[in-house]
């Protein structure tokens, strides 16, 4: 599942069947090479939901049990979110110091949130090559 398809998807509570938000961003943890939380907008309270608190990531909606899982980011998430942790449009460097391009999209496992592939202009980099995401670049292992 590509991030560009997930973005903008509505978030629905299964307890009330209400729209409780809209997916607007994600928080990627380079250490586990997976998306650990989704950033939401148009919520009543809170702005993130942890991947583990999602009931399902469906083709038309993301479901959660109720609004209690929509929370404010804690320190760990705060550190991973923000400009430094952003991945899209960031330069990709391999560990030999060669630039590979800029990230245009991600391919995620809809069940676990793990990063399957980074999509760059004209090429893809498998998620297991990811080494780090920093202020300057996304660093991947040389192929």
């Amino acid at each position: 599942m590509q991030w560009s398809q997930l973005k903008g998807r509505k978030v629905v509570s299964t307890a009330t069947a209400d729209n409780v938000g809209k997916v607007s961003g994600f928080v990627l943890d380079p250490a586990t090479r997976s998306v650990v939380a989704l950033v939401l907008k148009k919520t009543e309270s809170g702005s993130v939901v942890r991947w583990g608190d999602l009931l399902a990531v469906g083709t038309d909606a993301v479901t959660v049990a109720d609004t209690t899982v929509i929370v404010e980011p804690d320190e760990t998430l705060e550190a991973l979110a923000g400009k430094r942790g952003a991945v899209l449009k960031k330069l990709v460097l391999d560990d030999a110091g060669q630039a590979l391009g800029k990230v245009t999209d991600l391919d995620l496992d809809p069940d676990t949130g793990s990063l399957r592939e980074l999509l760059l202009d004209g090429r893809t980099v498998t998620g297991d090559r990811l080494l780090g995401v920093g202020s300057y670049a996304v660093v991947v292992r040389t192929d």
Partner: peptide, 12 residues
């Protein structure tokens, strides 16, 4: 003038 970049992606 090349950037010095850590494996965590920061230019130091």
């Amino acid at each position: 003038a090349l950037p010095v970049v850590t494996l965590a992606g920061d230019d130091v």
